[in-house]
């Protein structure tokens, strides 16, 4: 078995437990490097590193004033150098196998939600990449998800500044097959790959709230730490 991140042969000593569990295509070194959180106090909402522990950092207050739709936000890892390389390979070199690696890192209870919705990628991006990077991880995790959103976005988010992102019009819209649904009393989890400024995910939540969800939570695989 080879590690899908470093492609080295995984040659770990078998233990009593590993004998009875499924072999996972991720070596110990890569797992440790990827499953990484910087030490320090964090914002209780977006998990940004802050100097003093707080329930809501300044960025979150600004976003919350604009889009007060999200209840709780979760994130799996910090966006460190190793994760940056992985995401680059996964999204731009189209190394689809890394969806399995992200899935292995993601120990999250999806069952508590009635619906799981991935943030969509634009048609142009889909043509380039041939897959939605968020859905691919959900598929690897065997999570049933539902596409509810579409996007008119043209430019890459990573090409825009924070200011440009804040002032951009909301690119998301509800897909036709769900737009007439009333999902009051139901809960939804919106998932995305990276949380940078948080604007994407807040805009997505703002569109999806029209369906009357009782609770909207958010999960991102990696949180970029701007220090």
């Amino acid at each position: 078995m080879r590690c899908l991140n470093c492609h080295n042969v995984i040659n770990e000593e078998p233990t009593l437990i590993s004998l009875f569990t499924k072999n996972e295509p991720l070596c110990f070194t890569c797992r440790t490097a990827l499953n990484f959180k910087y030490p320090g106090a964090r914002c209780g909402r977006c998990h940004q590193l802050v100097t003093e522990q707080t329930d809501m950092c300044r960025d979150c207050r600004v976003l919350y004033a604009l889009y007060p739709d999200i209840n709780k936000m979760y994130t799996v890892t910090d966006y460190n150098e190793e994760m940056k390389l992985l995401m680059h390979r996964y999204k731009f070199v189209r190394d689809y196998a890394l969806s399995e690696v992200l899935a292995l890192l993601c120990t999250f209870n999806f069952k508590q939600y009635d619906y799981v919705v991935p943030v969509p990628v634009s048609e142009a991006r889909l043509k380039e990449r041939t897959y939605n990077q968020t859905s691919a991880v959900l598929e690897a995790l065997d999570v049933k998800y539902m596409d509810m959103l579409g996007t008119k976005k043209v430019k890459r988010q990573s090409e825009l500044s924070r200011h440009e992102r804040l002032n951009s019009t909301n690119p998301f819209y509800l897909l036709e097959n769900v737009s007439s649904m009333n999902l009051s009393g139901k809960s939804v989890l919106i998932t995305d790959d990276i949380y940078t400024t948080g604007i994407t995910i807040h805009q997505a939540a703002n569109v999806i709230k029209v369906l009357n969800f009782q609770n909207i939570d958010v999960l991102t695989f990696s949180k970029a730490q701007h220090i």
Binding site: M1, Y96, A97, L126, Y131
Partner: peptide
Amino acid sequence: DLFYTYYSSY
């Protein structure tokens, strides 16, 4: 072992 195959719905 150094190839990876997936189904692309697109």
